[in-house]
Amino acid sequence: MKFAFFVGCTTLARLWGYEIATRRTAEKLGVELVDMPGSGCCGTTYLETLDHITALAIAARNICIAEEMGLDIVTVCNGCTEVLTKANKELKKDPELREKVNEVLAEVGRRFEGTVEVKHILRMLKEDIGLEKIGEAVARPLKGLRVGAHYGCHLLKPSDVMMFDDPEVPTTLDELIDITGAESIQYPNKLECCTGPIMGVREDVTWAVGLEKVETVKKYADIMVTSCPFCYLTYERCQLVQESSPDVPVVHYPQLLGLALGIDYKELGFDNNRIDASAILEFMED
């Protein structure tokens, strides 16, 4: 199984733990992730709100690179996933819009053909590999570890575009956590947005929203697990800016899965997690 790997700005620039764990875990599961030469920012969900054609063209330029590679795209950021999925679907569906965007892309010698799919790594794990096969590959179940899952918004919404899982009662991340032997717990306001996107407008609001969720998770679970670098940053940083941090470890899903698959803790980029997550090791069976 082979995919074009769209890492995304935030993970490339600083969340190396996420990228390392994704690459190691994919390798372990026999998935080849191929880097996308010339790819850049997806455009961001901000650009979508500012200019429709520009947003489509910037996203499509990245999709064109995967089309040339002949590979479907795997993403690790909810924002990139939404931006690329939305552009890909709109351009495949609407020939007039596609012509308009292709006129812009012609300026840089590219053309959107509509030959590939875009999917978040959670979707790839569930739909392309499957829970059963992942379960069979688990070598060291994380027995007794209680996990507070955070889905984030753009993995699921807008649901008429993303067409993945259930926007009000999603289960994918919970299932993927449970398969590691850990237990995904239910907690109040589990689906609430991290509000990371307004960090640059009202930082105080983002930290307050983040902290509220972290403190809720702390009541019910040992760690928090995310599937988006932006959400991750919010829940990590909202703790770091406190005088006394609640110290709830925030872990990227592939780090958790990697451990269960038998990959060594040191090889999963945990030294990049700024809140020590080594307490997980106490839950590992030999």
Binding site: H154, K157, V205
Partner: peptide
């Protein structure tokens, strides 16, 4: 206008 986090809760 810039305070919307784009979470799509109202959209849904």
């Amino acid at each position: 206008l810039w305070l919307c986090a784009g979470c799509y809760t109202c959209y849904e």
